[in-house]
Design a protein around this nucleic acid. Sequence first.
RNA 1: GCCGGAGUGGCGGAAUGGCAGACGCGAUGGUCUCAAAAACCAUUGAGGGCAACUUCAUGUGGGUUCGACUCCCACCUCCGGCACCA
Length: 884
Amino acid sequence: MSEQKRDRFDPSIEAKWREFWAKEGIFNAGRRPNAPHRYILEMFPYPSGDLHIGHLKNYVIGDVLTRFYVSRGYDVMHPFGWDAFGLPAENAAIKRGINPADWTNANIQESKNSLNIAGIMYDWSTELATCKPDYYKWTQWLFQLLYTRGLAYRAKSLVNWDPVDQTVLANEQVDSEGRSWRSGAKVEKRELEQWYFKITAYAERLLQDLDKLTDWPEQVKTMQRNWIGKSEGAEVTFTCDAGDLVVFTTRPDTLWGATFMVLAPEHPYVAQLTAANKKAEVDAYIAKAKLTKEIDRTSTAREKSGVFLGSYATNPVNGAQIPIWIADYVLMGYGTGAIMAVPAHDERDFAFARQFGLDIVVVVQPDGQQLNGQTMTEAWPGEGSMVNSDPLNGIPAGKGDGQSVKAAIKWLESHGKGKGTITYRLRDWLISRQRYWGAPIPMLHLEDGSIVPDPRLPIELPQVEDYLPKGKSPLAAATNWVNTVDPVSGKPAKRDTDTMDTFVDSSWYFLRFADAQNADEIFAKEKINRWMPVHQYIGGIEHAILHLLYSRFITKVLYDEGLVPNDEPFDALFTQGMVQRRVRTAVVHSSAGIEFPEELRRKIELPAGVVGVDAARTALKQHGYTLEGDAIQGFEAVSGPVTMSKSAGNGIPVGPFVRQYGSDVARIVVLFAAPPENSMEWTDEGVAGAQRFLNRIMALFMTERDAVAAHVPGSVTTATIADHERDLWRALHIAIRKISQDTDAFRFNTAIAAMMELLNEVQRYRSEHAVGAAYYEVAHTFTRLLSPFAPHLAEELYAAFGGNGSVYDAGWPAWDEAALLVSEIEVVVQVNSKVRGRIMVPAAADAAQIEEWARNSPRIRELIGDATIRKVIIVPGKLVNFVV
RNA sequence: GCCGGAGUGGCGGAAUGGCAGACGCGAUGGUCUCAAAAACCAUUGAGGGCAACUUCAUGUGGGUUCGACUCCCACCUCCGGCACCA
C-alpha cells in the first residue's frame, strides 16, 4: 500500500483514553453529589473468562446510556459484579483439580480485562462477587430473615432432579419440555426434603404490581403473568368413604352436571378408595403413570386413560352418587389434585366420559339449541342459560356479576359446601442445591430434629477433597465442618450441607451495589434510599421469569421489612436481542434432490425426505437461512444465523478484534445494524461499514483540526450565521435534536444514522464552500454527539480541537428551535390525494395564500381543468389536497 | 387451545394519519491508478414510456378517512411464552 497520508481511525488511540477515564473517575458514582442521579445496570454475568463480541452487546447498551447521562450532567451509578457461584467452577475443579475459588478469580480477571479493553466503563469501586464471604454473608443473612418471617421452610415433596448436574431444581429452571435450564437433561421426579422460599405468599402482589411496570416490555410481563397463572374459582367439598374430598374448579356453576370425579394417581385417598376387586388394576395404572410422567407427560393430544376405583362420592348439591376414577390428566401439583368432571361442558372431561361410557348431563343450554348428553359430539364450554341446576336455573352462564359462577359460589358458601378461592400455578421456590460451589445454607440441625439458624455468619465454605456430586452435597464429606455446636443452646449440631440456588445470590445483588463495602449491615438505609430503584435495567429475555421474578419477590420481602424504599426493584427494563453470526452447513445435492443435515432439518422443520429446490429455498428463507450456490452446479452449503457462543464456535473474541479494529468499531457495528431489542447479525460488511463511518469523521474534520481548534465554540449563533452556511447550520440542529431524542429512547441505530446524515451534509458543504464558522461549530458539536457511541474517537477529536479535560464534562449540546426554521418550505400539492406537484412557499404564508398558489400552479390548473373543487384540505407546512 | 410480539426493496432497517423505503450494506457505472485496494461521484422497489410523466407496491381481504405501513374488523404466516392447569 502506498503511504498516502490520510486521516483514518486508528485503534491504537484507544488505550490512553481508557486510562484517562479510569484515572479521572469520570464514570464513578458520587462524582456529582448535587446533581440528579441515575442508576443504570446490566444483568451481571457469570465470569466465563474471555468474552466474545456476542457478550458485549448488553454492556455496550449500558455504557452508551451511562455516557449519555454523564454528558447530560447526571450523577450516574453504573456498577459491575460477578454472579460467581455455579457449576462451571465446580466442573473445572473436578476435571482439572483446581480450586473453584482460584479458577473463578482467574476468570473474573480475564472477563474484567475483556470489558476494559472494550471500553465499557464501570465504577469498579463497588465491584462484587457473589462467591466472596463478604457478599454471601448477606445472602445467608437474607435466608435467615426469610426463615424468621416464615418465608423459608423445609418440606418433603416431589421435586425436579437433574440427573446430569446431580441436584434438584426449581420449577422455573425446568422448561416446558421438562429439561434443565443449565444441563439440558430431562429432569426426573424425586421425593425429597428440601428448603423452599414461600414466593407463593407474594403471588398476588407479583401479579398485580406488573401493572405498575409501565417501562417493562409487554412480552416479559405476559410471561410472568402466564407463569404465575392465576385462576379464580371455588373449592367444593364432596364426601366419600375416605372423608371430605375437596376439588378446585373455575366453573362451580356446572357442579349440577358433575357426573364423576377424577383423582390424580398420587392422590392420598386413592389407596382407601380402591375397591378390593380393583386393586390390581389400580396399582398397575399408578405404576404406569409414574413412568409416563418421567418419560413424557407433555403431549396434549394423548388419548385419555384412567381406572375406576370402584367407589363413589356424593355430589354436595344434589346428593348424587358419582363414580371416582383416577387418571393421569389430573395433576397432583395443581389445585387439590382432584377434580369434579363435568363432561357436558369441559373438553377433557367429555373425551374421558365418551371413552369410558360415563353419563353426560347438560346444565348450560346455549340459546336456540337443545343439547342432549346422549347425542352431543363435543363439550359446550360457552354461554347459555343454566338448566338442571335447581337454584340456578334460568341464570345466564358466565363469570360476570349476576351470572352463574358468582351465584353458584354464593350458594355454596351459604350452604357450607364450598367457598370462592383463587389458585396459582406458581409454586414455592426450591432453593436447596446438592452442590459445592454456592452459599452454604446457614442452618443447624440439632439431635432432637429441630432446626435453628446459625448466628455465626458468614458460614464459610469448607475445603473439600472431592467435588464430585454423588446425589448429596460434597459438603457432607467435610465432617469437621459439618459437626459443630449450636452457639445459642450449646448443644451439638450438624450443619446443613446443601448450598443455595445461585438465583438467590442474584436476587438481591443490585441492592448491594448501593453500599457494597458495608461490613456491618446488608446496606445502609440512606445509601439504598438514594440509589434504589434501578432506573434502567438491561439484560436478556432469557431471564424474563427466573431472575426477574425472584428479584421482584426478594425486593418485596425487604420492602415489607422497611429495608428498601420501593417494592419493585427495576423501574425500566430493556431486553436486548442476541448477536448472531452466519454459520455455513454443508448439504448434499444429488440428482434426487437436496439432503439437509438432520439437525438443521429438525430445527427449522424442513419437510422430511427430498425437497424441491424452490420449496427448500422458501422454507429456508423464512427462517433466515440461505441456500448458497446455484441449481446447475449443485449446492455446497446452507448458511444461517446462529447466536454467537462458545459452543457454536462462532464467537469473535473481544481482544484480537479490538486490537485490530478498535472497540469503537465494534460498538458501531453492534449499535447501528438493527434496533437494540432485535437480534442482529454480525457480518464483515457491517465491520467495514462501521470503519468507513469512523474514517469519514476523521477525513471530514481532522484535516482542519487547527482551524477548528482556533474557533471558539458558540461564537456564532442562528442570528449571525452566514447565508451560505444556513443549510449546514440547520442540519446540525436537526441532528442534535434527533440524536438526543433517539438516544433517550434506545433508538441507537437511527441516532447513528442521523450522524451519518450530518456527515453527508458536511461533505456536500465542503465540496461547495471553503470551511467557515458553521463547519467549525459542527466539528466541535460532533465530538459531543459522538461521545456515547464511539467514545475513544470522541475524546480524541475533542482534545485535537482544543478541548480541556473530558468531552463528558463539556455538556450535551442543545438544539436551537430557531435554527430549525427555514424561510421557504416545500408544500406537496395533491389532487384527489395523489401527489401532482410541489410548490415553494414562504414559511410564514397563511393557508389561504398557499391554497391560492397551489391552485394557480400550471400543472395543477391543467389537472383540475374545469372540474368543481369539492373540498380543499390544507395541512400547514406540509400539503394541499384538492378533492374534485 | 389461550396470551403476547411481529410481517415494508436483494439484505439490516426508516417513516405511528400527510411525498413509503431515511441511514447503511450489497450491486452497477464512472473518476483517480500501470494495475489493484482505498477514497470520491452517480444510479439502484417493480412495470410502462424517447421524454415530460405514469401505473403498481408496506402478509391477505374488507372498513373508516380527502388521505392508511400507521386506526378498526376478519384472516394467513412467523417468533416467544403457557398448556390434559380443572
